[in-house]
Simulated scan of single mutants.
Amino acid sequence: MLAERRGDLLILTATLLASAGWLFSKEAITALPPAGFVGWRFLLAAVILLPFCHRALKATSPANLLKSAAIGLVMTLNLIFWIQAVMHSEGIGEGAFIMSLAMLIVPPLAWLIFRERPARQFWIALPIAISGLFLLTSGNGLSLSLGQLLFLLASMSLALYFCLNSRFARRVDPMALTCVQLAVTGVMHLFYSAAFEQWPEQVPGHIWGWFAASVLLATSLRFFCQSAGQKFSNVANAALIMMLEPVWTVLISVFWYHEPMPLQKVLGCLLILLALLSFRSRALYEWYRNRKAYKA
């Protein structure tokens, strides 16, 4: 039980760091080119993680390394949409909840790609999530703002990444897989930045502070805590704790950017959170039943 609690605490730390990463990124790209920022952030994070997984990388077959890199290209697409969405949005709270819908986009994608029919919980959660998304984004009428559209595209590409990665992740050490995919994402963004972006001649010192926090805390330490926590934390526990990331992000956005959260948006966020909980209800019930049986 002590190991499980330690795992839960590591997962909670990872969600807090991920939420803070939204703030670090938004502040950093006020002076840094978005793709260049993401490129250096992820490449440096991969270098920092390398000493912790170099043995696992050596033990991984070239074929699996190549497949890891290929899935990293999907992560690259996801980060392109995400950083552009962050740049075009005034706040980051509603974006975090839109991104959390990726969990509910995975089942239909798996159905389409791998012919895996979604569980009954998905069909219960779907109308709740759609209602929540409508309330969250209907401030502009029936049309989505550019930031909201980009966040939705980022959510879809993240779901595709989850769908492919979950099929492959068991074959490779989690830390090694993360390191390869971070490196691929970083290199691809730097290629894009070299071709289409221009770096400013001078960057204010405090911007480098946000950049360092993004690399060290929101990327390297976050993925380390997540990988370590998943070794000890119960699957249902981890899923439940990771659902809190958009909640922390909303609180950060309201505090830092004074993002308006009228009742309609609050209800939309609550409905999305309810949809995620109902989708995970079976896993949570199984965890509770097993825990009760263990105590007995």
Rank of each mutant, 00 (worst) to 15 (best):
R6H: 12
G7T: 07
D8H: 01
I11G: 08
L17I: 05
L17Q: 03
G21A: 01
W22S: 15
F24Q: 06
F24W: 06
S25C: 10
E27P: 01
E27Y: 05
A31N: 14
F37E: 04
V38Y: 09
F42R: 10
L43P: 05
L43F: 15
L44R: 04
V47F: 06
L50G: 02
F52G: 08
C53Y: 04
H54Y: 15
A59I: 08
L66W: 12
K67Y: 03
A69I: 02
L73W: 02
L73I: 11
L77H: 01
I80T: 15
F81E: 13
H88S: 12
G91C: 04
I92D: 06
G95Q: 05
I98C: 12
M99W: 05
L101K: 04
A102I: 02
M103V: 15
M103Y: 03
L104M: 13
P108Q: 06
A110N: 13
L112P: 07
I113N: 05
F114P: 13
R115K: 12
E116G: 02
R120Q: 11
Q121R: 13
F122A: 14
I124C: 06
A125H: 02
L133S: 11
F134L: 14
T137N: 04
S143C: 05
S145M: 09
G147C: 01
Q148Y: 03
L149T: 14
L149V: 08
L150V: 10
L152V: 14
M156F: 14
L158R: 05
L160F: 07
Y161H: 15
F162R: 03
N165G: 02
A169W: 00
A169K: 05
V172A: 11
M175C: 02
T178H: 13
L182S: 08
V187R: 07
H189G: 14
L190S: 00
A194R: 11
F196P: 01
Q198N: 10
E201D: 14
E201T: 08
G209P: 04
S214A: 15
V215P: 13
S220W: 14
A228W: 10
G229C: 00
G229R: 01
Q230D: 05
A236P: 10
N237D: 15
L244W: 06
W248A: 06
F255D: 04
W256Y: 15
H258P: 00
E259F: 02
M261V: 08
Q264I: 07
L267F: 09
L270T: 12
L271M: 10
I272M: 05
I272E: 03
Y288E: 12
N290M: 11
K292T: 14
K292E: 12
